[in-house]
Design a protein around this nucleic acid. Structure first.
Lengths: 152, 152
DNA sequence: ACAAACAACATAACATGTTAATTAATATCT
DNA sequence: AGATATTAATTAACATGTTATGTTGTTTGT
């Protein structure tokens, strides 16, 4: 006879948040050390990458592109500015907005680190397989899409 | 003629850490609110789940199962103990080890939250598709495996 | 023009992530 | 047995995650 107590609880390792966390940790283990050697956290690196792609961005745009909440970003920008890696000026048309750009020193640091990271990325791609990697990206994108198109 | 400057930089959205982060954020948005209503962080919830599965665990085992570093776990256990959700005693055979178990109050809290979370999980499964979810788990597992079997 | 609503950014407060250093107990080696 | 190395857990220090609140500048409505 089947009872509630006979139904096995979904195991911990079939937890989506945990699976995503562990995957992210494994990947970061490959990228973080090189960043740390140059005094950058993964979050600081994301900001620098965004500014290489775009040249000038306000804080809110950086926040969205880098998946950083404004309070975290606020502290990170203060830190990067103090170290001379980014520059800031208030927008002339909207004094609330803070326009951020990368400095030559920041650009130089990027050029130092970028090849190292790209090499690691290439290595992961080769080891895991290009096709599987693309499939993984697609699944992750679709997961986000399906979840976000819900209310609640 | 092709130059280095013509090679487009791999875009931000094709960053594996970012893709995993965004997916995790989207998923957590579905689970966190119910936990927060009951005063639990996702990390605290992971610890409680682990203790429901196992009854007694030492701190190191919890750390591994929950993907929490020991310093974080140390603070979390102090918090949960203070709130009467877990219990601790030092192991008789090894006084260094701290054996943790869940209290009746902790078990009750679990029974309250578990159905809510399982329902959300079922909803995601339905929306995303069972097959795709299984495929995602497999890809994530394999990614971790391939990355971890490397040195450097 | 002026008050109310809104938007961008900063700050506060607390939990967690992360590395290093500490403490106490156990294991190992000679 | 006694010195040394290892291990389990904690603490320290600082960066980030997260929600709430504050500050200032801009927009909207009348």
């Amino acid at each position: 006879m089947t009872q509630l107590s006979d139904i096995p609880m979904r195991h911990f390792d079939r937890s989506l948040p945990m699976a995503l966390l562990r995957a992210r940790e494994a990947v970061m283990k490959k990228f973080s050390p090189a960043l740390k050697e140059h005094g950058l956290s993964p979050q600081q690196w994301r900001v620098i990458r965004a500014l290489i792609e775009e040249e000038v961005l306000d804080a809110t745009e950086i926040s969205e592109r880098c998946a950083l909440l404004m309070p975290s970003l606020s502290r990170i920008l203060q830190n990067l500015q103090k170290r001379g890696l980014v520059d800031r000026k208030t927008a002339s048309d909207d004094q609330r907005r803070s326009l951020v750009s990368i400095t030559p020193a920041g650009r130089k640091l990027f050029r130092t680190l970028s090849p190292i990271n790209e090499a690691r990325y290439a290595h992961i791609t080769e080891k895991f397989g290009y096709g599987k990697l693309e499939l993984l990206y697609e699944l992750l994108d679709e997961l986000v899409q399906k979840i976000d198109e819900e209310p609640t």
